[in-house]
């Protein structure tokens, strides 16, 4: 809200060079507001203010039921009290692993699929596109349930399939072992979300004007070489968007692990990421009571980590990327 008012006050100072006549400038000032107001209003009231209300809790602690201002003490506990810091650092480490896994698999697979799909006059494009995007549309309830069944040692889908190709001994209860559980979940998550980078990059590839590829072909640049030298640089900004969406998504991830492994993110906390740690702390679990103050401290840390990542991208990478207008 405050931003809108500030904006209105600022608008008369619009750089005149851009606009030219002052009358035009006056006209401009209102439509900018009209364009921005609905989004800003809903977003600020329903999202930002409630979130600020929550983050502010990080500076308080309830003592005998009364909220007390404690400054940054909750963060002190989160980083240095072994009862909290162990969980925090391990969740952060797991989260980084989870993200790295997505970057190494999800986005390259997405690019590859999009590149294959955009081969001109390929039959069955619509079918493939729909099918590849299908997992992305499923709720965690379904994804978690079906993969649990497939990987279940009891019902035998994965063991049977492996047995069919003579690799039965390769089967392990992957979701139940500390060493493999997080990787398995990351793979399921990649399976689910590959559709997003694929779709965005596919759209970007189709958006490359025919003149560009024709010119390349006249110069004898075709096939894979054309993809690497001509198309990839053109879709780099889109790959950038995918990466940052993946980063933000991974550091907010929660549902899949919660659905498959529960709020304690077992076995032995080996699949605990910041999202599950936060949920458990903020809302509680079984006999553990929710602690909104420590929960808010964790949320603030997640926010800062994501802010850092997004800023690095926006100011470090995106600024240097060339943008092409067609």
């Amino acid at each position: 809200m405050a931003q809108v008012e500030k904006l209105a006050a600022d608008l008369p100072l619009l750089p005149a060079a851009m606009v030219g006549a002052e009358a035009l400038a006056r006209a401009r000032r209102w439509h900018i507001l009209v364009f921005l107001a609905p989004a800003l209003l809903v977003y600020t009231v329903i999202m930002i203010l409630p979130l600020i209300d929550t983050l502010r809790l990080a500076l308080f602690r309830r003592v005998d039921g009364v909220p007390m201002f404690v400054g940054l003490d909750n963060f002190n506990i989160l980083f240095f009290d072994p009862r909290w810091s162990g969980h925090f650092w391990s969740a952060l480490g797991n989260n980084l692993y989870f993200f790295a896994f997505h970057m190494l698999l999800q986005n390259p697979i997405g690019v590859a699929l999009a590149a294959l799909l955009s081969v001109p006059r390929l039959r069955g494009q619509a079918f493939y596109r729909t099918v590849f995007f299908l997992p992305t549309m499923l709720s965690f309830v379904i994804v978690g349930f079906s993969w649990k069944v497939i990987l279940s040692p009891l019902w035998g889908v994965a063991p049977t399939l492996l047995g069919a190709i003579g690799l039965k001994s390769w089967f392990h209860p992957w979701l139940g072992q500390e060493a493999t559980a997080l990787t398995t979940l990351a793979l399921i998550s990649v399976w689910q979300y590959v559709g997003i980078p694929m779709m965005l990059i596919y759209a970007a590839l189709l958006g490359i004007p025919a003149e560009v590829t024709e010119a390349a072909e006249l110069d004898g640049v075709t096939g894979l070489a054309q993809f690497w030298k001509i198309k990839l640089p053109l879709i780099l900004p889109t790959i950038g968007i995918c990466s940052i969406l993946t980063f933000v998504g991974n550091f907010n991830a929660f549902d899949l692990i919660y659905t498959v492994q529960g709020a304690l993110a077992g076995p032995n906390f080996s699949t605990d990421i910041l999202g599950t740690f936060l949920f458990r702390t903020f809302f509680g679990n079984q006999l553990q009571l929710g602690d909104p103050n420590m929960g808010a401290a964790i949320a603030t840390m997640m926010f800062l980590i994501i802010l850092l990542g997004v800023s690095l991208y926006l100011f470090g990478i995106q600024r240097r990327m060339r943008r092409y207008q067609f």
Partner: peptide, 23 residues
Amino acid sequence: LSRGTPNLENETWVEAANVMNGT
């Protein structure tokens, strides 16, 4: 006994599973 942090009930879940898993 489950009033503090770490929460004894949660820990018991984790440890009982660890023992049965042999870890």
